[in-house]
Amino acid sequence: MSSTTRTPRTVLITGGSRGLGRNAALALAADGADIVLTYRSQSSTAAEVVAQIEALGRRAAALPLDVADSSSFSTFSAALQAQLRQWNVAHLDGLVNNAGEGHYAAFADTTPEAFDQLVAVHLKGPYFLTQALLPLLADGSRILNVSSGLARFALPGSSAYAMMKGGIEVFSRYLARELGARGITANTLAPGAIETDFGGGRVRDDAGTNAMVASATALGRAGKPDDIGPAVVALLNPATRWINAQRVEASGGMFI
């Protein structure tokens, strides 16, 4: 069924103003979804994404959210509900927990402060944001949590970050189990190394890092944002609803 005849879906993407979140937002809009995206501080960048989505003929809105501040989630939920009412929409059809930040430090050099920040952003944030949004998720909706290839393979300097992503993968399985009675599915998408500004843009801007990634990848190059958006679309598509509690890696075959 084409997106022009399908009932429009409404999807929330955290961290949708840049990088993989932006690409996912645009890909979902091109597939016929209306998008609410969040941003932490870059309101002008978020507004640009909203304009791009609207140019595709879909509705879009950007709301501020700091996923590290779980005390703000009830306020955010109320703002989201108000936005949905403006669109005459009662519920979300999809939630993509994408917002995050990188961290590169050897295990011996990782500080408790850095570790706690990663927990707040990558574990506590998605856990309690999803909890706060449960009343706004439609029965039969889709949850997609973004992990990383680093949860499968090990590269020095990423131990703390990878631990968080390993926790997110466990979280997806428990969501699938506990929300299954409502027909809600939960999966994990684990991108490989992608050329974005994430983590200071190391994969995109550092030639040595990029070459290392390419040499370790079956398809012979580092990933592009456009490699990930279509994967998000596929995993949120109603036609793939029987995929549940799964980890899907989109890495081009890195370290196989």
Results as ranks from 00 to 15, higher is better:
Ala190Thr: 05
Asn237Gln: 14
Leu236Trp: 09
Met212Cys: 00
Val146Asp: 03
Phe198His: 12
Gly200Leu: 13
Gly183Arg: 08
Ala250Leu: 13
Asp66Lys: 10
Glu178Pro: 14
Ser72Glu: 06
Ser74Gln: 14
Arg177Leu: 14
Arg40Gln: 10
Phe115Glu: 06
Arg152Met: 09
Leu150Met: 08
Ala24His: 05
Thr240Arg: 03
Tyr104Met: 08
Ile13Thr: 02
Arg9Pro: 12
Leu118Gln: 15
Ala29Val: 12
Leu150Asn: 12
Asn88Ser: 12
Gly100Leu: 04
Tyr161His: 08
Ala62Pro: 02
Thr217Trp: 10
Asn98Glu: 03
Arg22Pro: 03
Ser3Glu: 11
Arg241Ile: 05
Arg241Asn: 04
Gln81Val: 02
Met1Glu: 07
Ala222Ser: 15
Gly208Gln: 11
Gly157Gln: 11
Leu129Arg: 01
Leu92His: 10
Arg40Ile: 10
Glu54Gln: 13
Ser17Ile: 03
Thr217Ile: 10
Asp206Phe: 06
Lys165Glu: 08
Ile53Ala: 02
Ser74Cys: 05
Pro238Asp: 12
Ala27Ser: 15
Gly223Thr: 04
Val213Asn: 07
Asp109Arg: 05
Asn244Phe: 03
Ala82Pro: 00
Met163Gly: 12
Gln42Ile: 00
Gly229Ala: 00
Val170Ile: 12
Asp206Arg: 11
Ala138Ser: 11
Ser72His: 02
Val146Lys: 02
Val170Tyr: 07
Leu144Tyr: 10
Ser71Thr: 13
Thr217Glu: 14
Pro8Phe: 03
Thr14Cys: 02
Asp227Asn: 09
Thr130Asp: 06
Ala151Phe: 02
Ala207His: 06
Ala250Cys: 14
Arg22Leu: 05
Ala211Tyr: 05
Ala154Val: 15
Ala78Met: 02
Ala234Phe: 13
Ala90Ser: 14
Pro135Tyr: 07
Gly180Ser: 09
Gly57Gln: 08
Ser71Trp: 00
Ala160Arg: 11
Trp87Asp: 07
Ala60Glu: 01
Ala231Ile: 02
Gly166Cys: 11
Leu56Ser: 14
Leu129Tyr: 05
Glu48Gln: 15
Gln86Glu: 15
Lys124Gly: 03
Gln81Met: 00
Met164Glu: 08
Gly125Arg: 00
Ala214Leu: 07
Gly167Glu: 06
Arg177Ala: 12
Gly208Pro: 06
Val67Tyr: 04
Ala24Tyr: 07
Pro126Phe: 03
Thr38Pro: 04
His122Lys: 13
Ala160Met: 11
Gly208Met: 01
Trp242Ile: 09
Gln131Lys: 14
Ser77Trp: 01
Ala154Cys: 06
Ser251Phe: 07
Asp205Val: 00
Phe73Gln: 01
Val96Asp: 00
Ser147Thr: 09
Gly166Met: 09
Asp206Pro: 01
Val96Pro: 04
Ala99His: 08
Val119Ile: 15
Asp93Met: 08
Gly229Asn: 02
Arg18Pro: 00
Asn97Val: 04
Arg6Ile: 04
Val121Leu: 06
Thr196Asn: 11
